[in-house]
Computed example of a mutant assay.
Amino acid sequence: MSRNLLKNPYGEEELEFWDLTENGGSQWKVEDMPGDCGFDFCIDGVTKYFATSFELCLKRQVIDLLAEGFSAEQLDAQPAVMVEDWYCGRTDCGCTYQMATSLLDENHEVIQEFKPEEVTLDPDSDDCSWKQISHTFSDYGPGMRLISFEHGGHDTKFWDGWFGVRVTGSSITVDV
Rank of each mutant, 00 (worst) to 15 (best):
E12T: 10
H108P: 00
G45Q: 03
R60F: 06
T52N: 01
I172H: 06
D124Y: 10
G143V: 04
C88K: 02
G38A: 11
F41G: 04
K131W: 09
A77W: 06
E55A: 14
D126T: 07
V119P: 07
W162F: 08
T168P: 10
V176Y: 10
D126C: 06
Y87T: 08
M82E: 15
S148H: 11
D92E: 11
G169P: 01
T47Y: 07
S102R: 11
V62H: 03
H108D: 14
C37M: 14
E55D: 15
M82S: 14
E84D: 12
S125P: 02
I111L: 10
E55H: 07
D127T: 10
E106L: 05
D76C: 06
D32E: 13
K29S: 03
F50W: 03
V83C: 15
T21S: 13
K7D: 13
F137D: 13
I111K: 07
D76R: 12
S129Y: 13
G89W: 00
W86I: 03
Y97T: 11
I111N: 07
V46I: 12
T96E: 14
W28V: 07
A72M: 09
D19C: 13
Q78H: 05
F114Q: 07
E68Q: 10
V110R: 06
Q74H: 02
M33Y: 03
I172R: 01
G25F: 08
G161K: 08
E106K: 12
L121Y: 04
E117T: 02
P142Y: 06
Q74Y: 03
G69W: 09
N8R: 06
A77C: 05
K115E: 15
A77K: 13
L75H: 10
A77Q: 13
L58W: 01
G38F: 05
D139F: 06
C128D: 04
I63E: 06
E150A: 10
G24L: 06
W130E: 02
H135K: 04
A80P: 01
P79T: 02
I133Q: 14
T120W: 03
L20I: 00
I63R: 04
H151N: 15
K48Y: 00
K157D: 15
D155N: 13
G94Q: 04
K131A: 05
